[in-house]
């Protein structure tokens, strides 16, 4: 219980052990993934055969490290492009949404707000199949009626970006709205009184205030997109992003290369997580 209530020694010990075990449970899977990427063996399992970086750097027929594995390197590139597009698009729309909901009063605002939250409660797989079925419907009718073939309406880059954007933009809107709510509107009024135009006020006063929230939500959006699986699986075309490539490999069987990619992913997310914490600390 709380520190001011006396508890038996045994209870406190059990509680501490429980918390310890919980963190072991939380971290164990991550630790084994990283450790076995460094094991000098053809399989990611015990026994420990010694330390090696082969699964990252080596380029022989038997041991192809991750940086020489074309399929993986290509899919990392695809994922980076998707994640960057989703992050930029989400943040732009989120700033607009935040201004709309925080600065304007209009009929149906509450309904619209609830609708905006809706993508957060639709399972990712369903978001994926609904977008797929809708865009294929349009593509098919364009092809049948006008003979037009729009490749971008078929599974692939654009559909992945749109499908992920549908729920990631909601997340970004919530973060940026929360920041905008704390803004002192008198600062804008003062600038307007001093003769600044609406655009100048937005650029020099409102936007700098929102910057930490914009940066923070851009990082989270980037990560959510890079790591998304459910929506992406349905919408992926032939050039599959990293999570899909990894998933296919995992079903075939595991190799230490998968551990190496996973470790790289963990390091990447770790750096971004620290960056976003740093930004939050500053604000």
């Amino acid at each position: 219980m709380i520190p001011s209530i006396p508890q038996s020694q045994a209870f406190r010990k059990t509680y501490t052990v429980y918390v310890g075990l919980f963190f072991l449970f939380l971290l164990a899977p991550l630790i084994v993934v990283a450790v076995f990427s460094l094991n000098d063996s053809l399989f990611p399992s015990l026994p420990w055969e010694g330390f090696t970086l082969d699964w990252y750097l080596e380029d022989t027929k038997e041991r192809r490290g991750l940086f020489h594995d074309r399929a993986i390197v290509d899919s990392i590139g695809t994922s980076l492009m998707i994640a960057a597009s989703v992050a930029i698009l989400s943040v732009c729309v989120a700033v607009s949404n935040a201004l709309l909901f925080e600065r304007h009063q209009f009929r149906g605002k509450s309904v619209l707000y609830s609708l905006m939250l809706l993508p957060l409660v639709i399972p990712g797989v369903i978001l994926g199949i609904s977008v797929l079925s809708f865009s294929s419907g349009i593509a098919n009718s364009l092809e049948d009626n006008y003979g037009l073939d729009f490749e971008f309406l078929r599974p692939g880059f654009l559909l992945i970006v749109l499908g992920q954007f549908a729920f990631i933009s909601t997340m970004a809107t919530l973060v940026i709205s929360a920041r905008l709510r704390k803004f002192d509107i008198e600062l804008e009024e003062a600038a307007l009184n001093l003769g600044a135009s609406h655009f100048d006020v937005f650029r020099t006063i409102t936007l700098p205030w929102l910057k930490p929230a914009i940066m923070g939500s851009a990082i989270v959006a980037f990560l959510m997109s890079f790591e998304n699986f459910n929506t992406t699986l349905i919408l992926a075309g032939s050039d599959s992003p990293l999570t899909i490539t990894l998933f296919d490999r995992m079903r075939e069987g595991s190799t230490p290369v998968l551990n190496a990619v996973s470790t790289l992913l963990m390091l990447g997310s770790g750096v971004l997580a620290l960056a976003s914490l740093f930004i939050q600390r500053k604000k």
């Binding site: 164990a28 899977p29 991550l30 993934v33 076995f36 995992m250 998968l258 551990n259 963990m266």
Partner: peptide, 17 residues
């Protein structure tokens, strides 16, 4: 921490364990 790490990596960790 687990939130920052892809679900795929976490599940893979459980498979190895």
């Amino acid at each position: 921490i687990p939130f920052w790490v892809s679900e795929l990596v976490r599940t893979y960790g459980w498979m190895i364990l």
